[in-house]
Lab assay of single mutants.
Amino acid sequence: DLSALRVEEVQNVINAMQKILECPICLELIKEPVSTKCDHIFCKFCMLKLLNQKKGPSQCPLCKNDITKRSLQESTRFSQLVEELLKIICAFQLDTGLEYANSYNFAKKENNSPEHLKDEVSIIQSMGYRNRAKRLLQSEPENPSLQETSLSVQLSNLGTVRTLRTKQRIQPQRTSVYIELGSDSSEDTVNKATYCSVGDQELLQITPQGTRDEISLDSAKKAACEFSETDVTNTEHHQPSNNDLNTTEKRAAERHPEKYQGSSVSNLHVEPCGTNTHASSLQHENSSLLLTKDRMNVEKAEF
């Protein structure tokens, strides 16, 4: 173990290094160091905050020279020094078990990766560091076993998940096959086929009936047209017969005018059967003409 005197000496050296690497504005270890034209180094955030307070150039807090945003430059070497100082402080805390008085939040800088452990060898070769390295080497064999167990647990979990997924996939297939086998029997399929065939026959029977009705309507229309044509021909046949009657009536009127007047009046009210309204109107006109002729003949006879 380190003596108290040596611990104090190391602590004083760390404090001196820390004062050199402090920012003059925030009085902390410089984060993202930036250098000016006057070779003074500050935190990048502190300098941008200072420049944004005034429009135009501002003055350096140490030498009062003008500073602009374009004049600022990043210093990589200074950032490396800060990183190495942080590593020294971490090693000091691990070796002594004491917390550094002016320690900052170094938890963000710590890294437990194997590459980081290899890099620590180049920091300080001390008894405390050696003991700590031995402890780490002793704890390393235990870690692979834990990793193997965790991997086995994960693989077993994956296997159970896969088996569950396969079961879920197989179950719908089985149910679907069961439904297909038990849903419709052979008799049901035959009945469905016969039902479809009967429906098709009914459709075939319905369509000819409609065509037959249309044919019957067409035949009825044709018969009505033929009947009207026969009526017209009958009226045409009746007209010459009426003319013959008129000639006979004229002759009778010349011989017996008194008797014919009474008979002509009675004939006005008689309509021949089986004739249309057109034929009756023609008869009325003929009878009126005959009456006028008879009157003329009677007057001539009187004179």
Rank of each mutant, 00 (worst) to 15 (best):
L2A: 06
L2S: 11
R6N: 05
V7E: 06
N15W: 02
Q18A: 13
Q18H: 06
K19S: 05
L21Q: 14
I25R: 02
C26A: 15
K31Q: 07
E32A: 10
P33C: 09
P33D: 13
S35C: 06
T36L: 08
C38R: 15
C43M: 15
F45W: 06
K49Q: 03
K49N: 02
K49G: 02
L50Q: 05
L50E: 06
Q53S: 06
K54A: 12
K55Q: 11
G56W: 02
C60T: 15
P61F: 14
C63G: 14
C63Q: 15
N65P: 01
N65S: 09
I67C: 02
T68P: 15
K69T: 09
S71F: 13
Q73T: 14
E74R: 05
R77D: 09
E83C: 06
L86C: 10
L86M: 08
K87L: 10
I89Q: 11
Q93I: 07
L94F: 08
T96S: 06
E99R: 02
S103R: 09
Y104W: 08
Y104H: 08
F106Q: 06
A107L: 02
K108I: 14
L117P: 04
I123F: 07
Q125T: 08
S126C: 11
N131I: 11
N131E: 03
Q138K: 10
P144N: 07
L146W: 09
E148M: 01
L151I: 10
S152V: 00
L155A: 11
L155V: 10
S156L: 08
N157A: 06
N157M: 00
G159Y: 06
V161M: 10
V161Q: 12
R162G: 13
L164A: 08
L164V: 09
Q168P: 07
E187V: 09
T194I: 03
D200R: 12
D200T: 11
D200A: 08
D200F: 00
Q201R: 03
L203M: 04
L203P: 15
L204T: 08
Q205Y: 13
Q205I: 00
P208W: 00
D213P: 14
S216W: 00
D218E: 11
A220H: 14
A220R: 01
K221Y: 00
K221Q: 01
A223N: 13
A224K: 07
E226I: 02
F227K: 13
E229M: 01
T248L: 04
E249C: 09
K250I: 10
E254D: 03
E254C: 13
E258C: 01
Y260I: 07
G262Q: 01
V265G: 13
N267H: 14
H269L: 02
V270A: 01
E271A: 09
C273R: 01
G274T: 15
T277E: 04
L282F: 00
Q283N: 11
N297S: 12
E299K: 10
